[in-house]
Computed example of a mutant assay.
Amino acid sequence: MQSAYTVESALKAAIVKLQEGDNTSPSIDAAVLLCHALDKPRSYLLTWPEKHLTSEQESEFNALLKRRLTGEPVAYIIGEREFWSLPLKVSPSTLIPRPDTERLVEVALDKTYGKQGAILDLGTGTGAIALALASEMPNRQVTGIDLRPEAQQLATENAQRLNITNATFLHGSWFEPLSSEEAVKFSLIVSNPPYIEKNDPHLSQGDVRFEPITALVAEEKGLADIRYISENARGFLENEGWLAFEHGYDQGLAVREIMQALGYLDVVTEKDYGGNDRVTLGRYCS
């Protein structure tokens, strides 16, 4: 049965509702949700604005819109998010990949592109960082580890969907899954670990409210996991290997001090696209 709504009128009505709900990106969110309901690309909205929705499509779109109006992230609603031009499946068991995290990939590539050696991604989540690096350096083996078995399974599924064969994902706490393997060494270790303080007000705002708290919060003013990884990475890095972190905008100095105190050399902090400290890395000589 045909709906009274056309593509154009459904889109406009949804934008108004999202604006009333204090949504920060109503036009984008409405378009993404409508495309998902129609199972069409974004270009369809521009090409066929006068096309009527079916009753089923209208019902599906309204259901998606209702979820977004409660604050649920669009990525969780449609089950997908693009990262480094890779379409990744996401779920509430993982963080939603964000553009700022692409800076970690860029910095890692800048330091190690064209070199040899295995790569390790700690707290891999959807596998976003690991898969981005694996796609850019297909001659190197990438291993991702996550504490949550659902995340490990999701990352594995993403690798299979993208036909990326040089990435493997393990389940466990930080370096634990590697302890039984003999002489495992990496030329690059990257991580986007939990780095938010447990009383940070941002935890009760926006998309973060729906994301797994264990992937966000760390003790010691958000630095506990960064400290732990920095200490233990020394036993898993090849000589002259690099360790790189994503961290909070105000943690650059603290992360540099942690790494320098542990003997890392050439420690430097790189800024994100907004001009904030975001990635700190250093080289370790064993």
Rank of each mutant, 00 (worst) to 15 (best):
R283T: 09
G172A: 12
L203N: 04
A183W: 07
E80Q: 10
N158G: 07
D250E: 14
G235A: 14
E56K: 12
P212N: 06
L162H: 04
E238R: 11
S180H: 10
Y273D: 12
Q152A: 15
L154V: 07
D121I: 02
A30Q: 05
T24K: 15
F210P: 00
F186P: 06
G123L: 08
K221W: 00
N232L: 08
L170C: 08
T54I: 03
S187Y: 02
D146C: 14
M1D: 14
A118K: 15
V7E: 02
V217T: 01
P99F: 14
S43D: 15
N239Q: 11
R98L: 10
Y273R: 13
Y76Q: 03
S135G: 12
S173N: 14
D272V: 02
E20Y: 00
L237F: 07
A37W: 03
E238L: 13
K17D: 11
L281E: 15
I229E: 10
P41S: 02
F175H: 10
L133K: 06
E82D: 13
I226N: 06
T126Q: 02
L253G: 00
Y44T: 02
D250C: 03
F236H: 15
L109Y: 01
L133P: 05
H36G: 02
I213L: 12
Q251W: 06
S55K: 12
S93H: 13
N199D: 11
K115V: 00
A261W: 01
A244V: 03
V142M: 12
D225M: 03
S85A: 04
K40V: 00
I15D: 05
W242K: 01
K271H: 09
G127Y: 04
V255K: 11
D207E: 12
N158Q: 08
L281A: 13
A30F: 06
R148L: 12
P97F: 09
L253A: 12
E50A: 10
N232I: 00
V7W: 04
V90C: 08
R103T: 15
L53P: 01
A224P: 00
P193M: 07
L262P: 03
A261R: 11
K221Y: 07
S9N: 14
S27I: 05
A130Y: 00
L69T: 09
A30I: 07
S173Y: 09
L88G: 03
E106A: 14
S204A: 14
E257L: 11
I145S: 09
A128W: 03
L170W: 09
G71I: 08
L104Y: 04
V105T: 06
S59A: 11
R283I: 10
D22R: 14
K17L: 15
Y76H: 05
V217K: 05
Q19K: 15
L188K: 08
L243P: 06
L154H: 12
S93T: 05
A13V: 00
L237Y: 11
F169C: 03
D100I: 04
H36F: 11
P49F: 09
R209V: 10
A224I: 03
N199I: 00
G172R: 05
L95C: 09
R42P: 10
P73H: 01
E211C: 07
I129C: 10
E102R: 04
D225E: 10
E150A: 14
A155E: 07
L95T: 08
L33T: 05
P97S: 13
I119M: 07
S25T: 08
V74W: 04
V16S: 13
P138N: 07
